[in-house]
Design a protein around this nucleic acid. Sequence first.
DNA 1: GTAGAGAGTATTGTATACAAAACCCGTTGG
DNA 2: CCAACGGGTTTTGTATACAATACTCTCTAC
Lengths: 224, 224
Amino acid sequence: MSRASDRAYSAIRSMILSGELPAGAQLGEEALAEKCGVSRTPVREALRRLEADMLVLRTDTQRSFVADWSLDDVADAFDLRAKLEGMAARRAAERMTPKSLERIRAANRMLHEAISQPQPDIEGFLECNREFHAAILETAGSRRLAALLGTLIEQPVVWRTAHQYSREALHRSHGEHEELATAFARRDGAWAEAIMASHILRAYHAYADAHRGPAAITVREAAE
Amino acid sequence: MSRASDRAYSAIRSMILSGELPAGAQLGEEALAEKCGVSRTPVREALRRLEADMLVLRTDTQRSFVADWSLDDVADAFDLRAKLEGMAARRAAERMTPKSLERIRAANRMLHEAISQPQPDIEGFLECNREFHAAILETAGSRRLAALLGTLIEQPVVWRTAHQYSREALHRSHGEHEELATAFARRDGAWAEAIMASHILRAYHAYADAHRGPAAITVREAAE
DNA sequence: GTAGAGAGTATTGTATACAAAACCCGTTGG
DNA sequence: CCAACGGGTTTTGTATACAATACTCTCTAC
């Protein structure tokens, strides 16, 4: 993190995630360089990385812009994430060790603490949630799967909606994590995969409900 | 493709795919720059892209090496590719248009021509195969899925084993493609997904059979 | 004989200058 | 009114110099 290009990457990324750089904004290399206090060289490198993350879009003439996320794009990303994290959960269940299981359970215990306080600690929740999923991904033991998921996990979307979660939603997450831990303990890959997929897709619908008109919600509820 | 960094990317990539740069070889920026006839700047950019493709590995101290592929890594990659191309096939089936279907069928007709000659045209086969899968991916209409698959499709592995395919194996590929086209015509997403997954996994086993001792083959066959 | 220190070498990281390409905008001709 | 054309401006691409870091190999101390 001490390299200038890493600083530029983090700085630009958090400007995008926080909304300081809104969707569609042009990302001039010179301007960013000045903002980050580095030269254009590391900024260029950071932009390429962000492009790979799909947070930045480049036109056919090499201009960079903050990517905008339509509801379809978000649905897409969650759909993929559900499939891939499902695969990770299955693999993790098949490869589970006592040590990994304990790490996963410890993360969820800390998560429970964070959300059980009078005023839920959302940052703590996010951190524990990240650690929980990271532990699973590591246990899955596929560098390639980890790389693919890397571009899907920290989306602007999740970032900004976590703070709207109700206490009930936070506790439901905790409960699903507990169920996952049980599936892991039993080494039941199919179960773990199914729980994980539903866990991710529930998060998607929480997002979608908050970001589209109530009409769609009605349709969805009617279909259930 | 006229930009120096693109030339460097292609040049280095094909040196890796062809085996001219063997697995584990160190990739010094200066040496590559000289080989490609450009300066270090575009070479650096190319290396970062190849790193994202997982063709190049970097140590914790920023040295780059040609990634080596264990059989497990390859199995991993094919497994992921089967899942993701399966998803693409399902989505494509759901979104199929007459125009897309015709493009897909045309690609497979050309593929059939290429392999039906007295001396099968392997390069032609590869090109038609690429176009066939590209057409499906485009019809699937998910930029993100396309991006994820991008890092999985052109592996050193596939590249170097296609030339060993028997005439029968080539025709089996053509037949599976035909079956896919039928599933697309019926808009049967589940069928398309299943065919595609088995199509990819068959290719994996063709590779694995060629690259490990015959003992494993016996085990595999005994299990069938 | 081995571990550690240190000088010297090789390699990567960053800044900057200049070249090339794209963009903006006013103009002109149909 | 619109499309095509230039010229000035902005933005990106590449080369290069220098700084910082990592590596190598020898020498020394134990």
